[in-house]
């Protein structure tokens, strides 16, 4: 998985990789949580339907009633929890993708260009990516401030939208750190002519 080409693992590289992997694992945990939540909701809804069937209501009136009173049914705000959690999960996946060069690109026309040109492209792309991510993160911060100011929340569970922004913002900030690190690596590469980080390409 690591994109380090020549096997010399700097301590700094290892730290950045660990950080990216940690974020991706966190994203995976959130995703798994959402999967479990949806499954519980589907199961609850199915049980709720079964318990309301006339046959069941007549055969096991007490059991059916107590289970229903206990709240057996779909999770009301399932939809909202998914929508407010996804931005964090996806943002948490960004650092690893950036570090391992996972973003889709077309290299057909640059393959035969000299190594020097390709290094220049790598450097420029790294700088553009870092600048864009800092911009994205900064604007998201402003977006969070606006959601806070306007007091916006979800409909049913009244989850404050700014909190969902804040979670995604933390992950975006980590991506900023990682993409800045990549710029530094590319600068060293340009100076020394060594290849340190490989682009692994997409594998979707």
């Amino acid at each position: 998985m690591t994109g380090y080409a020549n096997g010399k693992h700097h301590a700094l590289y290892r730290a950045v990789l660990r950080l990216s992997q940690l974020m991706a694992i966190l994203g995976g945990i959130v995703l798994t949580g959402l999967i479990v939540l949806i499954c519980i909701s589907v199961a609850g809804r199915t049980m709720n339907t079964i318990l309301h069937m006339t046959v069941i209501e007549n055969s096991f009136p007490v059991l059916a009633k107590s289970l229903l009173d206990w709240g057996l049914g779909p999770i009301l705000g399932e939809y909202e929890v998914v929508e407010t959690s996804m931005p964090f999960a996806i943002m948490a996946f960004m650092p690893l993708c950036a570090l391992t060069g996972g973003h889709a690109s077309v290299d057909l026309f640059t393959l035969r260009m000299p190594a020097r040109v390709n290094r220049a492209i790598d450097l420029i792309v790294a700088v553009l990516f870092a600048v864009c991510f800092v911009l994205i993160t900064w604007r998201m911060y402003e977006g969070m401030a606006a959601k806070m100011r306007y007091n916006e929340s979800t409909t049913l569970m009244q989850i404050p939208i700014w909190k969902a922004y804040a979670a995604a913002l933390v992950a975006a900030a980590v991506t900023c750190v990682v993409s800045t690190y990549i710029v530094a690596v590319r600068l060293v590469e340009s100076a020394t002519g060594r290849v340190m980080l490989r682009n692994e390409g997409a594998d979707y």
Binding site: I25, G27, A202
Partner: peptide, 18 residues
Amino acid sequence: LGNSFLATGRNTAMIFFI
């Protein structure tokens, strides 16, 4: 499981960035 998360995450990030 961790590796599945990493691979899923990497591709998810790629897709959503596009």
